[in-house]
């Protein structure tokens, strides 16, 4: 059985926390370029250029892209033939967050929900773990800012409302969010499962490379339809008017009960930071 030491996990997690905060990945930069090309408002184009410049300055001068370096959200796939040595997986991840947020001079934004006392080191992270075939450890990380997270919504639709009901709900969420989640956004939509499964799917949808279509044709086509509709709202970059309200809509689905049609929407800001490593 393959073994991995918790220190290796900790150090790699620390590194992706820092990398994500300072360096936008290629898929997001490419989405900026597409947005600049498609935008029709001159002042909105100018804003999109500024966002590109911000990403460049962040990388070159080593300043975080955004001051909201988020709460850490991790999706972890553990190969069932892998043994974690000298400690627990979740402790190793939290140790990595603690180290990354300290050494990377990132903002500690995690508090007790009632006392509002800051935990001081951005832990605990939110960790979803899945056991999969193989002997690898795949860690996907998203520092999730609250400006976009606060615009999330979930609704239990009637099954007969169907695709039209889903579209209406997604559009309603984007319209109500307006300028708040820092458009051009990425819209994550989770359809089906149950209450919490739909929310988890919506969040997981944001981990995909921005603008990569869903492999299932009917979902890819729904993504296209939703993106077109979202980009007719006029909200535009920073909510100041324009075409590019969203860079992408990502949909994930899961079978659900005959009486249910859960739909969840989770929005990501234009600084759609995400990193994945395989150990």
């Amino acid at each position: 059985m393959r073994e991995i030491h918790v220190d290796e996990i900790r150090d790699n997690v620390a590194q992706i926390c820092i990398d994500a905060a300072y360096s936008l990945s290629e898929d997001v930069l490419a989405a900026f370029d597409r947005a600049i090309e498609e935008e029709t408002s001159p002042s909105a184009k100018e804003i999109l250029e500024l966002l590109k410049e911000n990403a460049r300055v962040a990388r070159v001068e080593h300043i975080p892209i955004c001051q909201d370096t988020g709460i850490g959200v991790f999706f972890v796939e553990v190969g069932q033939d892998l043994r974690i040595k000298n400690g627990f997986l979740s402790d190793a991840i939290n140790d990595g967050v603690r180290k990354g947020y300290r050494d990377g001079h990132l903002r500690k934004s995690v508090v007790d929900p009632l006392t509002r006392r800051n935990t001081g080191d951005n832990t605990p992270a939110i960790i979803y773990t899945e056991v999969v075939p193989g002997d690898k450890l795949r860690i996907s990380f998203m520092p999730k800012g609250a400006g976009s997270e606060n615009m999330s919504a979930i609704r239990m639709l009637r099954p007969t409302e169907g695709i039209e009901g889903i579209k209406a709900f997604v559009l309603d969420c984007v319209r109500r969010a307006g300028a708040n989640p820092c458009p051009p956004v990425v819209v994550g939509v989770g359809i089906g499962g149950d209450f919490e499964k739909s929310a988890l799917l919506a969040k997981k949808a944001l981990l995909r490379n921005v603008g990569s279509p869903h492999p299932k044709l009917e979902l890819a086509s729904l993504e296209m339809d939703l993106l077109k509709a979202v980009n007719k709202t006029g909200i535009g970059p920073e909510g100041l008017g324009g075409k590019m309200t969203a860079m992408a809509v990502h949909v994930e689905s899961f079978p659900c009960h005959i009486a249910s049609l859960p739909v969840a929407v989770n929005i990501n800001c234009h600084a759609a930071r995400h990193k994945t490593i395989v150990l």
Binding site: M151, A153, G178, G234, G241
Partner: peptide
């Protein structure tokens, strides 16, 4: 400006609501 911007570029009626 948020209302004006959305009205100028939006196909639908501008909405001032926020979540």
């Amino acid at each position: 400006l948020y209302v004006a911007g959305r009205a100028e570029y939006g196909a639908e009626e501008a909405s001032e609501d926020s979540c």
